[in-house]
Nucleic acid binder design. Sequence first.
RNA 1: GCCCACAUGGCUCAGGGGUAGAGCACUCCCUUGGUAAGGGAGAGGUCGCGAGUUCGAAUCUCGCUGUGGGCACCA
Length: 638
Amino acid sequence: MSVTLTLPDNSQRHFDGPVTGADLAADIGPGLAKAAMAVRVDGQLRDLDVPITTDAHVALITARDEEEALELIRHDTAHVLAEAVQELFPDTQVTIGPVIKDGFFYDFARDKPFTTEELEVIEARMHEIVARNEPIRREVWDRDQAIAHFRSIGEKYKAEIIEDLPQGEDVSVYRHGDNWLDLCRGPHLPSSGRIGSAFKLMKVAGAYWRGDHRNEMLTRIYGTAWRDKKELKAYLHRLEEAEKRDHRRLGKDMQLFHFQEEAAGMAFWHPKGWAVYRALEDYIRRKLDKAGYKEIKTPQIVDRSLWEKSGHWDKFAEHMYALTSEDRDLAVKPMNCPCHVQVFNQHLHSYRDLPLRLSEFGSCHRYEPSGAMHGLMRVRAFTQDDAHIFCTEDQIRSESEAFSALLFEVYKDLGFEQVRVKFSDRPDVRAGDDATWDRAEAALKDATQAMGLDVELNPGEGAFYGPKLEFVLTDAIGRDWQCGTLQVDFVLPERLDASYVGEDGNRHRPVMLHRAIFGSFERFIGILIEHYAGRFPLWLAPVQVVVATITSDADAYAQQVLERLKAAGLRAELDVRNEKINYKVREHSVAKVPVLLVVGKREAEEQKLSVRRLGSQDQTTETLDDAIASLVEQARMP
RNA sequence: GCCCACAUGGCUCAGGGGUAGAGCACUCCCUUGGUAAGGGAGAGGUCGCGAGUUCGAAUCUCGCUGUGGGCACCA
């Protein structure tokens, strides 16, 4: 029986019998034999030592195949980590160890979690195992035999994993050297030496077995692994850079906001941070006004009965701030929708009123679990750029389109060009009949298609009350943030008895569209800080202009310039300190002030300004009037 | 909420059983300097909170709170 293998360049090689990826590589050349990591056979990645028995399209994987190579290296490094751990701590059970973005992790079951010192010891042992260059071989075992084996050596988690596999299915295990083995689907590198030394254990963490908080907690070790030291170094450098733009760091440095333990999870906004907040609020308010929204404001505290009617108390009571006053049970609002329905219900609406778009910068409080909080990104007090569109079913499509258009415009204005849209359709547990779901999903889908949006399907992830679109933006360093949302809801209008009079003179239920563009101001500002690394565009910058003097002879003129800037509506500050101009330039540059106006004797005499922009070495000299006029123009919100 | 780590002047951090140290920032003095740190002096902390061990605790132990990294959660 001969085997013909077709290579990526369409050349063919003939063999008399079954051949392994390793044979093939050796046949092509010694360089490739050394470099080959795995082989792709008809699209499937396989071990190098697995015989190929039929004609196939094959490709040998080497370090040049970035994606596959990293996958293989990280996967094998995870196994070597497990091997090292079990050599050093034989009482430890292994569980799972998948590849993740930038690295891998492995979860272990052990009485005591690993310490940082142990991590170092483990890493050292991993390097030894790599140096041993143990062969890694695949073995195929009978399922029940595998269960019995892992049970007998006290690996109950592995046994449990195999038990979940279908009856009669063989399982593969990989043997490192002579003794150590681990259950795994593979494929793997031919030997442990092929991993190289560009890996590093990063941190220990707890993680629930099978991701379920009712299960026991395992110890997870996170690691990173790369093709070479240079890549590893670049990755570690990337982490440092990301840390520099951390909004908590910059929020402190730039005096934007702070947190303190008397109000955990609730931001104290400082003048500079609040200036950013206000600029953003002014901006979005104008956009919403233009898009036909009507802004309202509803109470912070509402009787519990409303939350019971809306269904929120049932589901989220634990996460609501409840209080009692004069024998009434109240709750601080965790969301605005029920209140918006109350506003809607104050009038008997005609179909002619629809769509009615009610917006609110709604201040909400939710008791988030202590471990969930994270700077501005996850807080207990936040303000949503919330709105609810009351409309007919027929209007879902056009309203969705209009909303998406608005959202893209806003994201673009804020410097986010790359936005993904996820479409979440009906979940298993849901309210409403299938015909209504059909119509709602179709309307949403139509709207996205009409706009030519690329939509990722998120099957079964819709809210129980209706399908939704989620808008995910990508920031300057490639991280994804889900911010915008558009949710179709035909349940809440029912529960809170919203209705309108239709053309036919009868009462009908409106559909409610829940929608937000930022999500929450707090979180969105956090994202903006990190996206811009604190260097806000002029219209958002907390301090837009600093007037800095070279000599005290220019103080009076500088004061006059400041007044002019403020009168023109710019956020400006004055620096007349007894310091050298070098010092002032440095300080305001570090503080990320976009425009520095330097004034010395010359400028004062000629009524001019020396304009220096952040990030630029040179400066221009302009007349006072010109400079202010052009700054006002540049600082205009989009 | 769960696991691990951390908590020292405004900020960044060092120290560590015998009652605290640096740099930057701050105040004052000298310097009036033309585009990324001029010089000098000074002030500033009951070492997160509470208990325990000890002759003595900021330091060791326990509890609490908060923060960080994960997990779980996220209307």
